[in-house]
Structures are given as structure tokens and as C-alpha cells.
Amino acid sequence: MLARPTVQERTQTPLLSGMTQTPLQQSGMNGQTLIPEAPPGFKSGFIGLIGRPNVGKSTLMNVMIGQKIAITSPVAQTTRNRLRGILTLPEAQIIFVDTPGIHKPHHQLGEVLVQNAWSAIQSVDVVLFVVDASGEAGGGDRYIAEMLAQSNVPVLVGVNKADQQPEDPNQAEAIERSYQALAQARGWPIAKFSALTGEGMDVLQQTLVSTLAPGPYYYPPDLVTDQPERFIMGELIREQILYLTREEVPHSVAVTVDRVEEEPTITRVLATVNVERNSQKGILIGKRGSMLKAIGTAAREQMQKLIAGKVYLELFVKVQPRWRQSRTRLEELGYQVEE
């Protein structure tokens, strides 16, 4: 189950808004961050982002939060870890829970990801079921809808990628009818938007706030995610691998950040890229190290935005045979079933 943050968890400040690591304005005697008392009528709650792979859940959360905390790519199943994004408004605090895309698993890693996505459903206040407006509802959407219907959690159907609907009015109408039928059959409200262009996002935000019950601040107002910088850095490296490599490499990669050393003028990061085969290692390194250099350069640029300072990034590639099939290896690399 996705537990509410404990006092200890909430007094840690992994990543603040504005991409800088300045102290929060409110702090206690021991330097720990304080959470203000919520004003009358304040609302709060956890919104689970559920849907098939590559429907735009991570992009949606990044746009809602106002900065990049979740990686995105054209490759399906980009999200692997359950990630909380925190949006604090004058009237509410929304904690978005991004989950791996629900798909038919083909290995132990896939089984862990799907199991974690389903467990998140039972632990949130509202589910935003994200679907893709560029095509009609398919078997995967109907399967997720049936599973959600068996839970007691309120569901809002979010039709993303409104900007990518076909120009043919008949096709566009057929797509809309398919999702309306999916939602109306279960009494779920529906919202149409585009996380990419911003179309309909204000209405979506207002709708989500209206679904929440009165509640406290769960996190300090300046916090945008509960994940530490080290985790985000590893994800930024994996994002560039997703963009720059092809074939079987993206899904066979796990990144571990081994060391982060902060100096007055630069932050030094040492990370290992784990793959399953020597052939994948060769692809990642590239001719005379060209691919690894390109990955490192692009990831370093993103890290510098993250910490608002200079970064020196050193990457190593290590072969871990069949790591996706081993529960032990999965846990070592940070993938385990979440309670």
C-alpha cells in the first residue's frame, strides 16, 4: 500500500521547487523543515496516474508540477518506479503518483512494475485513468477499466493528446465515442486535454481539486517530489539512453548512481549503466566511446538544470546477465515490489 508520508519522511527535503537546493523558508530548531497548518477549506489528496504505456502520464505530471521530475521518451514502459509529484496550490495540495504503464509482462521486471502499478490504485484517493486521444479505446484500455471498476476508488478518465486527434471528423468522432462509452458505462466523469500543448489543463486541474476532500499539507509547500536528487540523476541518464539507443538496449538498462560528491564549484557524479549482454555494452559505448560520450553530455546538461550548478559526470557500463529475470538482481538495482 502507498502509505501517507510519516513525520520523518515529510521533514526530509529531496527536491525543492525552482530546480535549486536552497533551504525552505520554514525550518525548526533542529533544521528540519516544518509543514504549515492548512487553512480552513484546504484540500489535499493522492491522485494515481494509471494507463497503458506511452499515453503521456509522466509528461502530464511534469506539466502539472511545473518542472521536470519524471523522465519521458517515445519508448513504451519508460516509467519504472512509482514517483510522487507534489503540486501545492493556495487552496489544495495534490500529490500525483506516477506509475509504470500497465502491460502484459514478459519478465520478472515487468511483473514487478505491473504489480506496483496495481498496488498504487488501492492507496490513492482518486485515479486519473489516462488514455490516448489519437486512437480509439482498445483492449488494453478496456482491461484497465474493468480492473478499476472492481476497486472502490473514484475514477476520472483523462483523454490526453487531444492535439493528436485525426483531422478526419468521422475518425475523431469515433475516438471520442469509444472513450465516452468506456466512461459512461461505469459512471466516470471524463476530461479531454493535451499535456503537450496545455489545452484543457486548467480545467483538468480544477476538476482534480474538486474531487479531493478537505485535508492537511502532507508535504512542505516548496517540495515538488519525494525522491532524492540521486534518484532523479539516475533517471536522467536512463532517459538519454532511451532517446539515443535503439533495438533491445533501452529495456535492458538499469542505472545506479554510485557516488555524488558536492564541491564548492562543481558536483561530481559517478554512475554505472547495467546491461544484460556484451553486445548491448558495445552499443552503449559506441565507436571510440562516442555513444557513451553523447549520453553523458546530454545527461549532464539535464543534471545541471536540476541542481542549478556545474556537474562532472563519469559513466561506466557493466554487464549483469539476465538481471531482469532475477528478483535478487532487481532488488539490488532498486526494483522491488512496493507494499
Rank of each mutant, 00 (worst) to 15 (best):
V7H: 11
Q12D: 10
T13R: 12
S17C: 08
M19T: 12
P23W: 02
S27L: 14
N30A: 15
P36E: 10
P39V: 00
P39Q: 04
P40C: 07
G45Y: 05
I47F: 01
I47D: 00
G51P: 05
P53E: 11
P53L: 07
G56C: 12
L60T: 06
N62F: 08
V63H: 10
Q67F: 03
A70G: 05
P74S: 07
T79G: 08
T79F: 03
G85M: 02
T88G: 09
E91N: 13
A92V: 11
A92T: 06
F96W: 04
D98Y: 01
T99M: 03
P100T: 06
P100A: 09
P105F: 02
H106M: 13
H107W: 11
G110V: 04
W118M: 12
S119M: 14
V124A: 03
L128D: 04
D132F: 02
A133F: 03
A137V: 04
G138T: 12
D141I: 03
R142T: 09
E146Y: 07
L148C: 11
N152G: 15
V157C: 11
Q165N: 08
P166I: 11
P169D: 13
Q171K: 15
A172V: 04
A181L: 13
A185N: 13
I190P: 07
A191R: 08
E199L: 11
M201R: 09
P214M: 14
P221F: 07
D222C: 05
T225Q: 07
Q227V: 04
Q227P: 00
P228W: 01
M233L: 07
Q240C: 06
Q240L: 04
I241W: 01
I241K: 01
L242D: 08
V253M: 02
V253L: 04
A254H: 02
V255F: 02
V255R: 00
T256V: 10
E263Y: 08
I266T: 14
R268M: 11
L270P: 06
L270C: 11
A271Q: 00
V273H: 03
V275W: 01
N278R: 15
S290H: 14
L292M: 09
G296H: 01
M303Y: 06
Q304R: 14
Q304Y: 10
L306F: 07
L306Q: 05
I307E: 09
A308G: 09
V311C: 09
Y312A: 09
F316H: 14
V319L: 14
R322E: 15
R322S: 13
W323A: 02
Q325H: 12
R329T: 11
E331V: 09
Y335Q: 04
